[in-house]
């Protein structure tokens, strides 16, 4: 288990390095001159050249890349924002907790609401709840998030005046972004839950559980759901990326000072250090979160655990990289010691 986590963390470093190189290269070749944007149209050629060399943009591509990588990974210095002249890391760390909270709240809301809805729809297949879910899912998946957010702002901020429409003044500021950002994912997750519960609803072991005289609720949540969880966990895991990346659209609409807004501002101003810094930090966090999701698979489904153990025991380490879904290993007998 410990060894597996270490292995994954080493892979994470590779992922982050790769992400850094890719984002640096893309930003370098993307049209749009940051110096021009910084100085505006009135700058003289001398001013332009001076600023260019100050930012290090006059050097060859590879030298620039090396300077960035050297600073970022060996000195842990992501540089300072060109437009705000504040350190990128500080800017990130200031915004990350807000975005993280927003993301976590959305995930909790989504999970708590979507799973019971999906389970109920599956149990009463073709019933009223089921049809209701299918229609609602169609509506909310098709409706653009920003439009829904604007409608909610009109209703709850303008007409009723219950909730703030922008910024972060209090806990109330989280309600509208969380709700409007979760509607689509609630519907998607509820549909996924419905589909995977339907896969197990007629399974023989469910009849076995019923034949033991179990109360129906225990059959559903004790026997059906655990077996239906894998695809559900995958979906929830995907939404964790929003916890660090932020939902750019939501943060824009609610002027929510999170990572998403920070990044989208930086992109429009060609603020390279901020963009690169955000991407590197997000890549690192995402990779670590995905590791947790993968560990959760093994916890939920013992077969995945075993699959990992047997494949790594047989084929050695090479396979671990390809095999993206391993679980913890702690079984006696065929452990990883044999590698």
């Amino acid at each position: 288990m410990g060894r597996y986590i270490l292995h994954r963390l080493l892979l994470t470093i590779l992922v982050v390095l790769g992400a850094a190189v890719v984002i640096f290269t893309i930003m370098h070749f993307v049209p749009g001159d940051p110096v021009e944007i910084l100085l505006g149209n009135d700058a003289t050629l001398e001013q332009y050249a001076a600023k260019r060399s100050e930012l290090g943009l006059d050097k060859p591509f590879l030298i620039q890349l090396w300077n960035f990588m050297y600073k970022a990974f060996l000195r842990l210095d992501l540089g300072a924002s060109w437009t705000r002249s504040t350190p990128v890391l500080a800017g990130m760390l200031e915004r990350l907790p807000r975005t993280f909270l927003l993301g976590i709240l959305s995930i909790i809301l989504t999970t708590v609401v979507a799973i019971p809805i999906g389970v109920n729809a599956a149990i009463h297949q073709n019933g009223l709840q089921d049809r209701g879910l299918i229609v609602a899912a169609m509506v909310f998946i098709s409706v653009p998030e920003f439009w829904l957010a604007l409608l909610l702002i009109i209703l709850f901020s303008l007409k009723l005046g219950w909730l703030p429409s922008f910024g972060i003044e209090s806990w109330k500021s989280y309600i509208l972004p969380v709700v409007s950002g979760s509607m689509a994912s609630i519907c998607t997750l509820a549909r996924q839950t419905r589909a995977s519960v339907l896969d197990v609803v007629h399974a023989d072991y469910i009849t076995t559980a019923r034949s033991k005289g179990m109360v129906e609720r225990d059959v559903i949540y004790g026997h059906m759901l655990p077996n239906a969880l894998i695809p559900i966990i995958t979906m929830i895991g995907m939404s964790f990326t929003a916890c660090v990346g932020g939902t750019v659209v939501m943060e824009q609409i609610f002027s929510f000072p999170g990572v998403g807004l920070y990044l989208s501002d930086a992109i429009s101003r060609r603020d390279y250090p901020v963009i690169r810094g955000c991407v590197v930090v997000m890549a690192a966090f995402t990779a670590i979160l995905m590791l947790f999701v993968d560990l959760a698979y093994g916890y939920v489904d013992p077969r995945i655990k075993a699959q990992y153990i047997s494949s790594s025991a047989k084929k050695g380490k090479v396979n671990e990289k390809r095999h993206r879904r391993p679980g913890p290993k702690h079984h006696s007998g065929h452990g990883n010691e044999s590698q």
């Binding site: 023989d204 072991y205 076995t208 559980a209 033991k212 005289g213 026997h223 655990p226 077996n227 077969r303």
Partner: peptide
Amino acid sequence: LLDIRRRKISMIFQDPMTALNPTM
């Protein structure tokens, strides 16, 4: 009925491969 299933009637199912919950 639940009580009958708990105390009086048991069933052995046809296919042992699928009659057991794979995650328990």
